[in-house]
Design a protein around this nucleic acid. Structure first.
Lengths: 216, 216
DNA sequence: CCTACCGATCGGTAGG
DNA sequence: CCTACCGATCGGTAGG
């Protein structure tokens, strides 16, 4: 019994898929997940539309794959930067620092991929919306956990309202993204660091982070 | 010399235009300013596409008119609610109160119209982007002005960084919008009021507003 | 304000 | 992974 052999090797196909996703993340970051059309992607990659679509099956699957690829980038840029840091306050500070840096460096040219995606899909029930909501919930939960650990360790006041703190941190992040993208406001990272420092009670600069590490 | 008479009277045409904009604001709030297509608008209104387009000339003009119509609603919901209030701290409190209420009541079903529009257009240079950026700049400037007035009156500490305060207020607003729309988080308005109260140093509840008024 | 169009592009399929 | 399609919809125009 013969199996029809693919025109490209498995390794080549995987590379193509990863190329498509890299272009897709960039395109979706600038134009939105709906503005990411199969035709534009194909043109940009010098492929046929069906060649692109064949890797995913439908536009929704393509969107889900692009969201996953963007999440990998975010994880590499933020969570991984705090991976070796002691849980609690040091890790909370490191995450905030990396988050601000991720927005300051404009890792996604269109600003935070997930803020844009959330705003685009928060009114459209479906798998894409669920994926975005799920990811941001996980990241917020991580902030919450580090806050509770910091409280337990006595590094944050015991009367801290952890949910409230996470809400306010998310606000600073959103304000930074908004000011950077819409107003091209270059003072925004400074405002964001100042706000976070006041919220958490410790400067979020690198030096303090090192001191926290040494103390841990 | 004859002028070709329109099929509808001027008053009727104006009413039609206003009907189109009302539908347009609702559609754009849910689907985005790009998802607002002339065909869908026509179907929803029981009109022909060219009948809709004739009122605006092009899709971009339609988008600009919809942004203006949404700005009128925002002004009615927020700025007008603080119109009679004394400048400075009382007005700042009243504006924040109205802003939270506007998001809590979900005046636009898709969440803050301008947050969504900003996220959609922050990467697309053009008149629509300029209109959105201009409006949010005006509203932020109003917050800034009231902050300065409150400082001059001694109602806020003289060392207050007004730009920083406006940045942080905008973050609370954005976090409230995000939590409400993406996570359907009903505790968000409480978090937002608590954050604003702490930022400004006075409760933003109605009773305090009345007391501030009496004291003024 | 309508009908009747236009070329372009959309997501997706058949078949190889 | 390609060519060659499909019906639907896009923004917009001509002409009345």
């Amino acid at each position: 019994m013969l199996i029809v052999s693919p025109r490209r090797s498995v390794a080549e196909a995987r590379q193509t898929r990863s190329d498509i996703l890299a272009s897709g993340v960039r395109l979706a970051s600038a134009e939105g997940l709906e503005g990411l059309t199969i035709g534009r992607l194909a043109t940009e990659l010098g492929m046929s539309k069906s060649g692109v679509l064949g890797h995913f099956g439908s536009k929704e699957e393509l969107q889900l794959a692009v969201v996953d690829a963007a999440a990998d980038i975010f994880t590499r840029e933020v969570a991984d930067k705090a991976r070796g840091v002691a849980p609690g306050l040091p890790k909370l500070l490191a995450m905030c620092r990396a988050w601000v840096s991720y927005l300051e460096r404009r890792v996604f040219p269109g600003g935070c991929f997930f803020t844009a995606a959330a705003s685009e899909f928060d009114d459209r029930p479906g798998r894409v919306r669920n994926a975005i909501a799920g990811l941001t919930t996980v990241w917020n939960r991580d902030l919450y956990r580090q806050t509770r650990t910091a409280m337990a360790a006595g590094d944050l006041p015991p009367e801290t309202d952890a949910d409230q703190l996470v809400f306010e941190i998310s606000g600073v992040i959103l304000a930074l993204n908004n000011a950077t993208q819409l107003h091209r406001d270059t003072t925004a990272p400074t405002h964001a660091r100042r706000a976070l420092t006041r919220l958490i009670g410790y400067p979020i600069t690198a030096i303090t982070l090192l001191l926290s590490l040494r103390a841990a």
